[in-house]
Nucleic acid binder design. Structure first.
Lengths: 348, 348
DNA sequence: TTAGGTTCTGCAAGCGCTTTCATAAGTGAC
DNA sequence: GTCACTTATGAAAGCGCTTGCAGAACCTAA
């Protein structure tokens, strides 16, 4: 086969092909039903016909039309994925994994973003439902719990970052408390006592969990919680800058900062730098999510690492299970701490 | 029909999914054709029936099934988008814009990634074609030109970052040369003469263009091109680090670095930092793409800014035009330079 | 050879919607 | 009031594939 032919066969095999299963049947001298059965393995077919059909298929370059198939089977073979932001590196990794896993199981993934806004998210979900997706993965949804429960009657749901118990809902990676605890414990372990926390948006379950983990770690170490060391953020770098500025302006003393996510930490590091404070010499900084870029910040950021690819893969697997009516056994993916150079020990 | 009767006898405004156009027709006392015509505005219908049908629709909460619709119309109403990496922040922004625009035009977007690998990309395209997308947007495709030309026979194509002239192909944002020129000119303007370039992968059209722009700027300023100041990279931060290390190890002198993209620049800045060289005091660094994170690096990175959202929107618009058989008038989006703190003037 | 089972395989009826095509209804004009 | 013509609407035939049903073909045992 010449190179050009090869390319044609690879790429145009399935394209706008007016080739239908009917034509394959005619070519092979069998009925459409038989072709369908061979295609789907839904019944035994005599060997000779199988060969004839296979020959016809490759001769005509037939690919079954997924639309017709969906209609006939009453299944769209697609699942919706609502991400908060297609652009975020954190979600990006998760999405890749979801995509990969779903394709492998012959589902199409419809990605759509919610922009961290309730109304947008609702609109996105409606859109997906109108497209007849068979299930929906909601990454860190911010919809009210009751609404999610209702939604689940229409299509099974996978939720990340929050815990909702209801039929046809499965939650993954529900608890950030442990991760936050890990980060804070580490700082404490390194001798820090005055640890600030740049929190995430208060309407996000995971942001609250991170705060809770921080508090737990403090109290376990008998360090009194100082609310003036906690400032609100919004999971953005700009928010992180504002947080540090606020802390410094109000003359708080602190030797370490636990940021609710990496982006916040980036902003924090920049703000500290601007104020002439060196990281980690004067202030240790720790983030959450361990974005790929965090290996390359100056200094490289210590961060709570989440198994993003694994999370995505599990989400995809879980939605498939749910769609196919099986039950999913819950299993959170543990977080670990990626220790790099933005933190240092106060002990000597 | 058995099903329709069943639903009717149960007589519920059943939860979304199961309502068919047939049921709406029955409820409104008209024929399915009429309902369809009202839905699509394909013919005039008497006002009273329109109202009856609309009432039935909202009473039953009917949404037309896109699968059935696609089959009947012979149009999938979906377009494929091949990105190189779902996780990359640069593509993320573009994708968001594409998504938004496509949805607005009632198309579904199927995102899938090519991982910068020819084989993966080919597989992705095949997958999309098998899904019967009506058009494909290829973001920085690395497939050979001939193959793209063939592909275009199957479905119209939008290409970014490269120029291929053929029927049913439209290219956008084809030239990075100007952007690279902008960056290099700026450095020269600031008095730099020894400017290193951390190049992108040689099999990427845009990487070569960036190199070309760099060379053009040099020669325009009568600065001899020194090939030892150009090192290969791969558009990653790790590659940027390796690049700087190589440069420094071979004892090259330079006061500025033009990185082929922002990620490379991040790595470069870290490597310089590790070697004790201050940015911008001793070395100026400039990137390309102006990722959102670049405002928050230390120091904030000067970078060639691309109108990502606009690019995405145009790509979406272009594919729609092509699908609907119209012609697209080419128009590149201009790049600008976002000057921040990673560069400084050598003049005084 | 024949009854009683097994396998195969084709027919035809959908899946939910669109779209001719033809009929019914409505409109003027004469 | 009739004719020619426009307009609204329904019946029915698909779109390409799946699947229940039943007949055909093939076995095996007696």
């Amino acid at each position: 086969m010449r190179r050009a032919d090869l390319e044609r066969s690879v790429n145009t095999a399935s394209s706008g092909g007016a080739v239908t299963l009917q034509m394959v049947a005619a070519e092979a001298g069998v009925s459409p039903s038989t072709v369908s059965r061979i295609l789907n393995g839904t019944a035994r077919v005599k060997e000779s016909k199988v060969r004839a059909v296979e020959a016809a298929i490759s001769k005509l370059r037939f690919t079954p039309d997924p639309v017709a198939r969906s209609l006939a089977r009453g299944r769209s073979m697609s699942v919706g994925v609502v991400t908060q932001s297609l652009g975020s590196p954190f979600y990006g990794e998760v999405l890749s994994a979801i995509e990969e896993r779903l394709i492998r199981a012959n589902y199409a993934a419809l990605f759509i973003s919610g922009h961290y806004r309730e109304a947008d998210e609702r609109r996105s979900v409606d859109h997906l439902l109108a497209r007849r997706v068979e299930g929906i993965i909601l990454l860190n949804s911010c919809l009210p719990e009751q609404e999610l429960v209702n939604l689940a009657r229409g299509a099974p749901l996978i939720l990340t970052g929050r815990a909702v118990t209801a039929a046809r809902i499965h939650c993954l990676d529900v608890d950030s408390t442990a991760g936050a605890r890990l980060a804070t414990d580490y700082l404490i372990d390194q001798g820090h006592r005055r640890i600030a926390h740049l929190a995430g948006p208060a309407d996000h379950a995971d942001a609250l969990q991170r705060l809770a983990g921080y508090r737990k770690a403090l109290s376990a170490a008998r360090i009194p919680f100082a609310k003036e060391l906690v400032v609100d953020g919004d999971y953005t770098a700009a928010g992180g800058m504002r947080g540090i500025d606020a802390l410094l302006d109000s003359r708080q003393e602190f030797t370490a900062v636990f940021a609710a996510n990496d982006e916040t930490a980036y902003g924090a590091m920049l703000a500290l730098h601007r104020r002439g404070l060196s990281v980690p010499k004067q202030v240790s900084v720790i983030g959450y999510d361990d974005l790929p870029a965090s290996r390359f910040t100056i200094p490289p950021l210590t961060s709570v690492h989440r198994a993003t690819a694994e999370l995505g893969e599990r989400a995809a697997e879980a939605i498939i299970e749910l769609i196919e009516g099986r039950t999913v056994t819950r299993s959170d993916t543990p977080s670990t701490l990626a220790v790099r150079e933005s933190t240092r020990s106060l002990r000597r």
